[in-house]
C-alpha cells in the first residue's frame, strides 16, 4: 500500500515532467530488452504462454510474449494505452475469436490443455476461464437470472434449489448478497455501476471457473465502488487464478502478487509486484511507473 501511495504522488505532482517527454522519443532512446526481464515463468503454472504473436489484419499487436500465470495468484498486466495488454488477456479465453481480423500465433496452455487446439472446445474453455469486462455488462434480465445464466447454460444445476444455492453463494462471494437479496427479481441494469460490476463478477464465478480474467474492471467506476471491487479481488485471490488488466498502478500494487509490464506489444518486465514498483529493472518500466508516460 505504501509503495502505491508514493507512486501516486510522483505521478500526480509531476505533470510538467510528464508533458515534457514525448512517448516516441522515449521509445527511440530506450531500447527494448532482448528478452523479458525478471521472472516471467513460474514452477507450477496454471496457464503458460509461449511465443505469442497477435495480428490485427496487417498490423502486429503483440510480439513474442512468454508468460506464465501461477496457480491461485493474482497477476496484474499494466502498461500504457494500446500496449496490447487487453488483447493479450482476450487471447486467454479466445474472446479474440469474435473479431474476424484478429490472428493469434504461439502456444497457450491451460494446465495440460492447449487453448488453441482445434479439438479443445471453446465453450468448455470459457467455462473454465471466465472474463469480466471493462464496462459492466449485466444482461437486461433480473439479478437472479443474470447469475443463473451460466449455470443454466452448462447444466450445472438440475434442481431449483441447487440453482438458488449457486446464485446465493456467488452473490455472497461477490459481496453483493446483502445488498440485493430482497430484490433478486429486479433487473440487473437497475443497479449502480459498482454493483453491476460485482454482479458481473458473481455471474462469472457462478460457473466455478479456474481462471478469472478481468479487463480493467474498475475503469468505469467511482473510487468507492473501485475500493469494493479491489477488496473483492483480494478475497477471491485464494480460490481463483486472476489476471487483471489495469490502468491504475495503485490498483495493481494493491491487489496483485505479480505484475507484468507491457510496452507497445512487448512484454518488458515481469516480477513480484513489490519489486516492479520499488526497484524496476528496465528503464521503460521505470519511466512508466514514475508517470513519465501513460
Amino acid at each position: 500500500m505504501e509503495t502505491a501511495q508514493k507512486l501516486n504522488d510522483t505521478a500526480q505532482t509531476n505533470p510538467a515532467a510528464r508533458m515534457a517527454q514525448e512517448p516516441e522519443t522515449m521509445n527511440q532512446r530506450i531500447p527494448y530488452p532482448e528478452r523479458t526481464i525478471g521472472k516471467p515463468l513460474c514452477d507450477d503454472p496454471k496457464m503458460s504462454m509461449r511465443n505469442v504473436d497477435v495480428f490485427y489484419g496487417d498490423s502486429q499487436a503483440i510480439y513474442g510474449v512468454d508468460l506464465d500465470i501461477g496457480k491461485n495468484e493474482v497477476i496484474a498486466l499494466i502498461g500504457p494505452s494500446g500496449c496490447g495488454k487487453s488483447t493479450f488477456l482476450r487471447c486467454l479465453n479466445r474472446m479474440n475469436d469474435t473479431i474476424d481480423i484478429c490472428k493469434v500465433k504461439g502456444s497457450f496452455m491451460l494446465e495440460q490443455d492447449n487453448i488453441y487446439d482445434p479439438k479443445l472446445d471453446v465453450v468448455e474453455l470459457r467455462a473454465r476461464v471466465g472474463m469480466v469486462f471493462q464496462k459492466p455488462n449485466p444482461f437486461p434480465k433480473s439479478i437472479y437470472e443474470n447469475v443463473a445464466y451460466g449455470p443454466r447454460l452448462h447444466g450445472l444445476a438440475n434442481k431449483k434449489f441447487e440453482l438458488d444455492e449457486i446464485v446465493e453463494s456467488s452473490l455472497r462471494k461477490a459481496g453483493l448478497w446483502d445488498e440485493v437479496k430482497d430484490r433478486l427479481d429486479q433487473p440487473g441494469t437497475g443497479l449502480s455501476g459498482g454493483q453491476q460490476q460485482r454482479l458481473c463478477i458473481a455471474r462469472s464465478i457462478a460457473v466455478s471457473p479456474e481462471v478469472v480474467l478481468m479487463d480493467e474492471p474498475c475503469s468505469a467506476l467511482d473510487p468507492i465502488a473501485t475500493a469494493k471491487i479491489e477488496e473483492l479481488i483480494d478475497e477471491l485471490s485464494g480460490q481463483y487464478t486472476i489476471a487483471i488488466v489495469t490502468h491504475s498502478m495503485q490498483q495493481a500494487a494493491r491487489v496483485s502478487q505479480r505484475t507484468a509490464y507491457f510496452h507497445l506489444g512487448r512484454l518488458i518486465e515481469v516480477n513480484d509486484t513489490n519489486t516492479v514498483f520499488t526497484a524496476p529493472e528496465h528503464a521503460l518500466t521505470e519511466a512508466y511507473i514514475t508517470g513519465r508516460f501513460g
Binding site: 465453450v123 470459457r126 467455462a127 469486462f133 455488462n137 447454460l153
Partner: peptide, 27 residues
C-alpha cells in the same frame, strides 16, 4: 444490442446460438 452483451455471454461459455437466443433476442 451492444457488443458488450454478446461478449458477456460468450465469455461465460455460451455458444453463439445460446447468446442469440438468451441474450440478444430478449434484449
Amino acid at each position: 444490442v451492444p457488443r458488450a452483451m454478446r461478449d458477456g455471454s460468450l465469455a461465460l461459455g455460451a455458444t453463439q446460438s445460446e447468446t442469440i437466443k438468451r441474450v440478444v433476442i430478449p434484449a
